[in-house]
Design a binder for these strands. Structure first.
Lengths: 194, 194
DNA sequence: ACAAAGTAACTATGGATATAGTTAGTTGGC
DNA sequence: GCCAACTAACTATATCCATAGTTACTTTGT
């Protein structure tokens, strides 16, 4: 059900077409919530049906049209209810930790290779997160900038600070993963030599 | 697909009935992989059908019987293939970070309340993880002990060290979450006063 | 003797998610 | 003038996962 609220959150910044939403999801918003467009388009339709969004047909080129989704008052109210409601605790389900617990079933070379892949992934994540954080701090982030233009300075300050806070959490998490991976290299070294 | 390998991993320790597996999942193994029994029983059946497990009917009381699942050589081979294969990178999908990014939509009191709930959850997690880690180090953990009895000292050392390593990662993650939550309290204080 | 708690093994249903397409119009480069 | 890349909006299928039951037998406490 969080997809629905991720979509409202995104659309409070500015009205968007399904395609825009899909692009936003695969770039910046994907850091906090990933979704493929096969989920996004149907969900946008359902949300319009449920009155959380309205759509406006916008011309595109000569013949084409595109649907631009706007958050309704009901949608915003629904979002606030969700924002105020307690969070259901996350289930632990991470294949990386499951694998690590049974690394003794794999060859040391394979373990090192997998650690390298995880390291590359998290380093890339970290770079992206730090880059995005910088665009939040200087308020150049496109979606954020669109939303800020509708707010007064006090409200803008809150919006920016909480977003930076969320990214700080993600960055801390990425660093923790990288530290764990570094420990993994050291452990393989200790147990199997270099 | 990881559920299948989590099940094989568990059953390499000792043969178990579906019920045993379900209990293990809701206690110790749930730290790395959660699954309800509505997933476990059908998956065990499919795995038996696919030749990864065999089952032995064991009498239970006067009239009852129970099915004890054993990992087959094919199952172990399949597990090793998975253990050696690269890990698909994680999708980020965490409602806590999504919410945090939009805390300005919620009342400060509600934010504090949600932070408190998250804090309680992660403190409890941390306690459990540290408790389980201790039973791994002193080799008193039941599932681990069962597996160790089939291994020589060198193999046992590897099995223990990697399991402790996995738990160290989970513990570090829990601590990172708690530090982030503490920063959240400080931020709410700064932005809205106490 | 009986009830409560525990053990065992499921099923049913709906929603969430991943993977992989499809159809059609638009823009920019050569 | 045409092709590649991009924009737009999907659909189809299968699996994963969560919630909430059901049935039936066993052990333990009183």
């Amino acid at each position: 059900m969080s997809l629905r609220y991720a979509l409202i959150a995104l659309l409070t910044g500015r009205p968007m077409t399904g395609y825009d939403v899909s692009k936003s999801f695969s770039s910046s918003v994907a850091h906090v919530w990933h979704a493929p467009d096969s989920q996004i388009y149907p969900e946008l339709n359902r949300m319009e049906r449920d009155g959380l969004l309205t759509s406006v047909e916008v011309p595109w080129g000569k013949k084409g049209t595109k649907k631009e989704y706007h958050v309704t008052d009901a949608g915003l109210a629904d979002f606030r209810v969700w924002m105020e409601s307690p969070l259901v605790p996350q289930r632990q389900r991470d294949p990386a930790y499951l694998k690590a617990a049974y690394f003794d079933f794999a060859a040391p070379g394979s373990v090192r290779e997998q650690l390298r892949q995880q390291q590359a992934y998290w380093e890339e994540q970290l770079r992206m997160l730090e880059g995005t954080r910088a665009t939040l701090v200087d308020r150049s982030h496109p979606t954020l900038a669109a939303r800020l233009s509708k707010l007064n300075e006090r409200e803008a300050e809150l919006a920016v600070r909480y977003k930076v806070y969320a990214y700080d959490g993600l960055i801390a998490r990425a660093r923790t993963e990288l530290a764990w991976i570094a420990d993994g290299f050291a452990l393989v070294e200790e147990l199997h030599g270099s």
